[in-house]
Design a binder for these strands. Structure first.
Length: 302
DNA sequence: AGGAACGTGACT
DNA sequence: AGTCACGTTCCT
């Protein structure tokens, strides 16, 4: 996964502008060896998902945020249309950063979904997935419409085209969206989906599902919210000043999801129709108060 | 209720 | 072993 490297090279944040005394030199990029500044996303995210399982799909994620050398290596692939490639001189750093943030926000959830779908599909093929098994969710009832919505337009657009996510209009994307768990850390496969696909040996996925259920594990940064994407400690907030005693991340970098109470976050997930294992055919909720950001039925809702 | 300090898990 | 950071507890 190279998103973090892309971010670090892609543009200077507003923070960097503010704390210019430190950020003028590239020293800031190597200031923390554990990745606080240069790799804010990779550590939590790479553990949360089986990145090695991802193929070309994941590479599309970082296309827009790589430096020139990285972009060159992917020059054969069509770049996602919404990603601007302005000259740095033409845009201010802050503006560029905002643009990147918008692009990221719009794409991350869908990309995670696409990646999970790719993983499931690939693994399912490897396991000679039963014909009537996973496919049955597609055409059945409202789930089908939601699925077609997703794969037909949003996902394809976000990922960059059928080459990257070949489950487009005619691709026959065979999975019920209810089989996916939308979490702050990304989109994962529901437990039952794993069993249906015979994927019990995919440890990260099942482990995550159990972690969601138990709620015992330490939560991790979502990696997508603005605070998570922020790479610079303010060095001025109480958390920064009291780092030795406080053991707390900079207030401006505190993940939005982690700010919520664990119970509240769980309730949001449940009410948004993404309960860990109760899958596909749950009856529609009478008054769904969907999470503004995560909803497995309405992936475009943010 | 919000913030600070501490305990401790996760990671290098 | 050292560092980071989430969760809990305590204090205001």
């Amino acid at each position: 996964w190279t998103m973090s490297s892309g971010l670090s090279a892609g543009g200077r944040t507003e923070d960097q502008e503010r704390n210019s005394c430190k950020q003028d030199s590239p020293v800031i990029e190597r200031r923390n060896r554990s990745g606080i500044l240069s790799e804010p996303l990779s550590k939590s995210l790479k553990k949360s998902r089986t990145l090695s399982q991802y193929t070309a799909v994941s590479s599309a994620t970082s296309n827009g945020h790589k430096d020139n050398s990285e972009t060159k290596s992917h020059s054969a692939k069509p770049q996602p249309p919404p990603l601007p490639q302005p000259t740095v001189s033409a845009l201010t750093a802050a503006k560029l950063d905002r643009t990147l943030e918008q692009v990221l926000e719009g794409q991350n959830g869908l990309l995670h979904f696409a990646q999970a779908a790719a993983l499931l599909k690939r693994a399912g093929m490897e396991h000679m997935l039963l014909p009537g098994g996973m496919g049955m969710g597609v055409g059945s009832g409202d789930a089908g419409s939601g699925a077609s919505d997703l794969e037909g337009t949003s996902v394809t657009d976000a990922v960059g085209g059928p080459a990257d996510f070949p489950y487009g209009v005619g691709g026959g994307f065979p999975f019920n969206p209810g089989l996916f768990i939308m979490t702050p850390a990304g989109v994962f496969l529901a437990d039952s989906a794993l069993h249906m696909a015979g994927l019990a040996e995919y440890p990260a996925q099942s482990e995550l599902a159990s972690a969601i259920n138990s709620g015992k594990k330490k939560r991790k940064r979502c990696g997508m919210c603005p605070p998570c994407r922020r790479r610079i400690n303010c060095d001025q907030c109480s958390s920064c000043r009291n780092r030795k005693t406080g053991h707390q991340i900079c207030k401006f970098r505190k993940c939005e999801e982690l700010k919520k109470k664990p119970s509240a976050a769980l309730e949001v997930k449940l009410s948004s129709g993404a309960p860990g294992v109760s899958v596909a055919h749950t009856p529609p909720r009478p008054s769904p108060p969907p999470s503004p950001r995560f909803c497995c039925r309405c992936p475009s809702l943010r």
